[in-house]
Design a protein around this nucleic acid. Sequence first.
DNA 1: CAGTCCTACTAAATCGATTTACTAATGCAT
DNA 2: ATGCATTAGTAAATCGATTTAGTAGGACTG
Lengths: 377, 377
Amino acid sequence: MLDLNIAMCETRGMPTKKAKADRSARKQARPVSLKELATHLGLSPTTLSLVLNDSPLAGSIPQETKDRIFAAAEGFNYRPNFLARSLRARRSYTLGVLVPEVSDGYAAMVLSGVEDHLMQEGYFYILASHRHKPELIDHYPNLFFDRRVEGLIAVDTQCHQRPPLPVVSVSGHEDVEGITNIVLDHDRAAHLALEYLVHLGHRQIAFIKGQDFSSDTSARWQSISDVAARLGIKIQPSLVAQLEGDSPSPEVGYVAAKKLLATAKPFTALFAFNDISAIGAIRAFLEAGLHVPGDVSVIGFDDIHAAAFHNPALTTIRQPLWQMGKLAAETLLKRISGGPEAEYPEILTVEPELVIRQSTHEAPRAVTAGRRARKSS
Amino acid sequence: MLDLNIAMCETRGMPTKKAKADRSARKQARPVSLKELATHLGLSPTTLSLVLNDSPLAGSIPQETKDRIFAAAEGFNYRPNFLARSLRARRSYTLGVLVPEVSDGYAAMVLSGVEDHLMQEGYFYILASHRHKPELIDHYPNLFFDRRVEGLIAVDTQCHQRPPLPVVSVSGHEDVEGITNIVLDHDRAAHLALEYLVHLGHRQIAFIKGQDFSSDTSARWQSISDVAARLGIKIQPSLVAQLEGDSPSPEVGYVAAKKLLATAKPFTALFAFNDISAIGAIRAFLEAGLHVPGDVSVIGFDDIHAAAFHNPALTTIRQPLWQMGKLAAETLLKRISGGPEAEYPEILTVEPELVIRQSTHEAPRAVTAGRRARKSS
DNA sequence: CAGTCCTACTAAATCGATTTACTAATGCAT
DNA sequence: ATGCATTAGTAAATCGATTTAGTAGGACTG
């Protein structure tokens, strides 16, 4: 056990004071409708709509009337009902976003990029986390469709069926018609990491693969295998561990690293599936009496906020997550405005970057992780 | 500079292949309406609506007709248009959630709790991050209202005006009519942390306050001051630093800790505003040649995922963030279903918990942070 | 055999805005 | 005095579902 202080947090909901809602202040709760405003002005809703939307058909309306309308709209704080508008225009200006989990750092970064772009364009999104449950992965898109989203962004989530709407998938990897995939250049990522490790003198390299449900897992592993072969590195099957379980905490990496240590095969470096698992692995190494990077070098993946400030600061392959989110939003809006017949890109590739910090070092001469681990256990 | 590898990530959007949308497959894009279904069955939309919604008024409809309707709905994959329904029923089953920033770990945890409860109840939410910009804090709620959200959850965000809708604020602290505040018991939190430090023998305790925009800052500081007085601890003004800037990274804590070290006042412990800043502070201490917890003990706040896996593992005051999110959602839905006249709690308090890990230790006898820092600088 | 009840439905209004297709009144030219 | 254009608007349909207030026709009752 890593943390013995796991206890239930007592959530005591004790209403300290009660407040009686004030009827008169509440009265104005319901906003005015166009019709009400029109009646008040002695005009028809049509006229108001034309003027307020600055339609070319309002050309014949004299400025004086327009001013009256604007003044009244202002005065009554008129705000058009978005639902009514959406229904009529068949445009919801809303997207659905499906993520495995909000609180894991990865999805949040992507979301941040998505949001920044959508806000600019007057779009909102509704968000759902499926937590890797297949029934939710199937169910949520339907709920999104019911709410008339105009498109879907799927983050690290596999969609199998051809969707009835434009879909952009971030790290999706499945070749489904109608879906644009935004993916990292995994070959380049593997190359950056492995070449750097080799350059530091590492030959016995251990790996932590992602969970099977993570859509990056197989593509990234394929790239690693290819690049390793090209660089003349042998991947020892016993030095490959896999993340298990869907916790978004470093614990899964800790467990995987323990397994690697247990095989007693020596290694001088670890390439982890992501920063979170790298952090867990470092914990496992420290507990085994191994120094990072003195005895084992560790490279993470993603470059989440925590990576730079971990101790030791994590060397990692940065994914431009924010940009991937933004690109996803841009691409999806472009597809939406293009209409269903429009052409769309099937794959958009973004480039990784090697960020060298303190968790990697030249390979030690003699002492390797496996041997030390055996000694200390 | 902490991390020299800050470089722009090149986002190369290169469409590798283009796909021509398939017209025939797209045809069925628009879903059937109730009216179309009714025409197809030779019945009126009314009848279908009654039957499909299992209205008591459908009592007189023979089972055979009902079955025909159900079969057709199934066959044509009929799904009622949520917008139309919302417009008519004046219910959107949607909330607005306003957070400072999705990607900081704190908001994401709260969101996770919010979402878990909302999904159960058939609600969705739209999300906006204001990034502490006052104009956005004022603007986004209006956009939410336009979209007819039924209520608002504000996370770590001050609302000043009386809202026209039920609002639940997580760590809001402002006493505004119409808003339910969900707050941590900060007195208890301060007590847990300070008593523990005193128990370990610490007397010279440094503090990092939160940014002024963070709504927890003043309440928490007030509690710390009160509890310190009660415990007979003198808070040295020169041992109080404040976070500055709105970056969600540990950097702000690093800067604050540097300032503390620069004052050359000795201290043996630090109580940081949150885990993120504690992690930054630890980095500053390490760089100054101070050992954590040997020379300085550090207590964080929140217990984000990263806390347990930092090196050293962070002792912290856990906020039940997930529960706070869930409680916010529960409370808001309760208020919504109660109607505008209903009573509602003004404050709900949740309890913190001290999580002891490796970043705290008994106070050193002679060497204190300030002195060592002076020496090493 | 008129009145009432029941069955199996339906017409029309509604939610709130947009949009198409008008109209009534005036001015101007012929 | 008639025709035509322009001005200043409005009525009604529409988006898609829900809901209120019916109705047509048959069975049953007194």
